[in-house]
Lab assay of single mutants.
Amino acid sequence: MEVRTIKVFTTVDNINLHTQVVDMSMTYGQQFGPTYLDGADVTKIKPHNSHEGKTFYVLPNDDTLRVEAFEYYHTTDPSFLGRYMSALNHTKKWKYPQVNGLTSIKWADNNCYLATALLTLQQIELKFNPPALQDAYYRARAGEAANFCALILAYCNKTVGELGDVRETMSYLFQHANLDSCKRVLNVVCKTCGQQQTTLKGVEAVMYMGTLSYEQFKKGVQIPCTCGKQATKYLVQQESPFVMMSAPPAQYELKHGTFTCASEYTGNYQCGHYKHITSKETLYCIDGALLTKSSEYKGPITDVFYKENSYTTTIK
């Protein structure tokens, strides 16, 4: 009895394709271990004539594949690729409408935090270190965002349907971005203890939790000093293409032309909904596939993004 075979390709990165001759009487799992086709788990399936010449994702289970996976995804987590594939199996079914010149995501599976993050990423200057993220990001900007969303979920250790947080998501993504040249110098002034300067680099240099107003941050924000008295913390120097200011959701007025974009969060910790506000020729609110415009805006804002380049204080 002759062994019926077909020729397929296996890959971990969709760049390096490895030619395989597979036995049609055995499952993919018996031949390769966990195997995925377009995100779908085909591990328990036997090869079919229609699979001839198709590319299958496999887990990096030998040295060659491990090197290829690390170079593309910059992670050695053995569960990463499987999590990416199972997320992709959902995100490829989502709709990605162009809204006001940006790629958004039609609401499904509690994905409003991903839509808000995706919209924000198209408006701030950011370059990702893992080629996987950078490639998928370019495709997302062009309207094909399924891979990018699935990668975000995998890097953030999230599953489809789980509630997510924009600030946490951005923080994970910033860790995989090139923020080497970003720098922030802060000064804390206390009447009792004097003053202390701190220099922050990388992710810490672009994120701040405690106030939404970048102007206020430049002037000074009140913080408790270690001595128990009130101290003032203010920005001395900022070198970065953008800054992200966050605070627990509270009524906040966004003035046209003073910011790049913002995240609105309605609801409580267990259950809520994100919308995205962007400042173009007027203010726009993007909620999944829905767009509304207004000249002014007041609502429960939790993150505001500002364009920056270089700032030095005039406070002496």
Rank of each mutant, 00 (worst) to 15 (best):
Q237L: 13
N157C: 10
H176K: 09
R167D: 06
G228K: 05
C156G: 06
K229M: 07
V166R: 00
T159Q: 13
C190T: 03
E264N: 02
A69P: 05
V22W: 02
R139V: 15
K275E: 04
C225D: 06
M207F: 13
L119F: 02
A117E: 05
T116G: 10
S263I: 15
P248N: 14
T278P: 02
S310H: 13
F242D: 04
P300R: 14
K229V: 06
T260A: 04
L65G: 15
N100P: 02
S25E: 15
V189G: 03
V236R: 04
D23G: 10
A115C: 09
S104Y: 00
C190S: 04
A69V: 14
N147T: 09
N129Y: 13
S295L: 12
L37N: 11
T27N: 15
V236F: 07
K201W: 15
N178C: 09
Q123C: 09
V21R: 12
K298R: 14
Y274Q: 03
P249L: 03
T192G: 12
E162F: 02
T313S: 14
A40P: 04
E125G: 08
L118F: 14
Y306A: 04
T11D: 00
V58G: 00
I45V: 13
L114P: 01
V3F: 08
V188D: 06
Q237I: 11
G39W: 05
V236Q: 13
T278C: 09
K92I: 09
G82N: 13
V58T: 12
T64G: 12
L121R: 06
T76R: 14
A136G: 06
A177T: 15
W107P: 15
E125D: 00
E215F: 04
I301L: 06
H51R: 01
Y84I: 02
Q20W: 04
F174L: 10
A177V: 05
C225P: 05
T282K: 10
Y155I: 01
Q196I: 07
E162I: 04
S213D: 14
K316M: 14
R141M: 15
E215D: 10
G29A: 05
Q238F: 03
D135P: 00
C271T: 15
D41N: 12
P300N: 15
V8L: 00
V99N: 02
D23N: 11
T103I: 06
G161C: 03
I315A: 13
T232Q: 12
V189P: 03
N89E: 01
V243I: 07
K316A: 15
C261F: 01
M244P: 08
M24D: 09
K280C: 08
N89P: 02
Y172Q: 09
T76D: 15
D135A: 12
G33S: 07
G288P: 03
T75K: 05
E68T: 08
C271P: 14
G39F: 07
C225A: 05
I315N: 13
L186I: 14
H51I: 02
T314F: 13
T211M: 14
F174T: 00
F217N: 08
S295D: 14
C225F: 03
Y28V: 02
V21D: 15
T232C: 08
Y28N: 03
Y269I: 12
L88M: 04
I223M: 14
E68H: 06
L65E: 03
T314Y: 11
A115L: 07
K201V: 04
T199S: 11
V12S: 07
L283D: 07
T192P: 01
A117D: 04
Y73K: 01
E2V: 07
P300H: 15
K275D: 03
Y252V: 07
V243C: 09
F56I: 02
V21N: 10
Q134G: 02
D287Y: 01
H51P: 00
Y297Q: 08
A262S: 03
H48C: 15
K219Y: 06
R66C: 12
C227A: 05
E2M: 14
L121G: 03
C261G: 01
T19R: 11
T169Q: 04
G288A: 12
S295I: 13
Q31N: 10
I277E: 05
A108I: 10
K46S: 13
S240A: 12
T159W: 10
T258L: 09
A250V: 13
V22G: 06
L17M: 10
F259H: 06
S263G: 05
W107G: 11
T10A: 05
H273I: 08
L37C: 14
L59D: 15
E296M: 13
T75D: 04
Q134V: 09
K307T: 14
K219W: 07
I15F: 13
K7I: 00
T266F: 09
C112Y: 01
V185L: 07
S181T: 12
M209T: 06
P248M: 07
Q216A: 15
S50F: 13
Y214W: 09
A205T: 05
Q175R: 05
L163N: 02
I277A: 04
G194H: 03
F56T: 00
P300Y: 13
C149T: 07
T76L: 09
G299A: 08
A154D: 00
F80G: 00
Q134K: 13
A205G: 04
V3D: 15
E162R: 03
P60H: 07
S50V: 09
E253Y: 13
Q251C: 13
T302G: 08
K127T: 10
K218Q: 14
A142V: 01
V189F: 10
D41R: 03
K127G: 03
T282Y: 10
Q122W: 02
G101P: 02
V236A: 15
I223H: 14
S279H: 06
N100L: 07
L114E: 02
L153W: 01
C227Q: 06
L153F: 07
G220R: 03
L163K: 15
G257K: 07
Y311C: 08
L118P: 06
N16S: 05
M170Y: 03
Y36D: 05
R66A: 08
E239N: 07
Y265P: 01
H176D: 02
R167A: 03
T159C: 15
A231I: 03
A231P: 03
M244D: 09
A108G: 00
F9H: 15
K191T: 11
K93H: 14
Y234I: 10
F242Y: 04
D180A: 12
Y96N: 01
E52V: 11
A177R: 06
N178S: 09
H276L: 04
F217G: 05
L37Q: 11
Y28D: 04
Y208R: 02
T91Q: 02
Q237R: 12
M24Q: 02
P131N: 01
T103Q: 02
K316G: 13
V304K: 04
Y155A: 00
P97K: 07
V189K: 12
C149G: 01
G143V: 01
E281A: 05
Q30S: 07
T19L: 13
Q195P: 15
V185H: 09
R139L: 10
Y311G: 08
E162M: 07
Q270N: 11
D41I: 08
R139A: 11
Y172T: 15
T19C: 08
C149P: 01
S213G: 05
K298F: 11
S240Q: 03
L102I: 06
N89D: 14
Q238V: 01
Q31K: 08
L153P: 01
V189A: 14
I286H: 08
A69H: 15
T64F: 08
L133V: 05
F217T: 06
K106H: 15
T198S: 11
T258H: 11
V221S: 06
H51W: 02
G299P: 05
A177Y: 03
Y84T: 05
L283Q: 02
K218S: 04
V42W: 15
H276T: 04
Q197H: 08
Y57W: 13
N61I: 06
W107L: 12
N157A: 05
Q230Y: 15
K7R: 11
T55M: 08
P131L: 01
Y252M: 06
L81R: 06
Y214K: 05
Y57H: 07
M170L: 01
F32P: 03
L163H: 09
L65H: 15
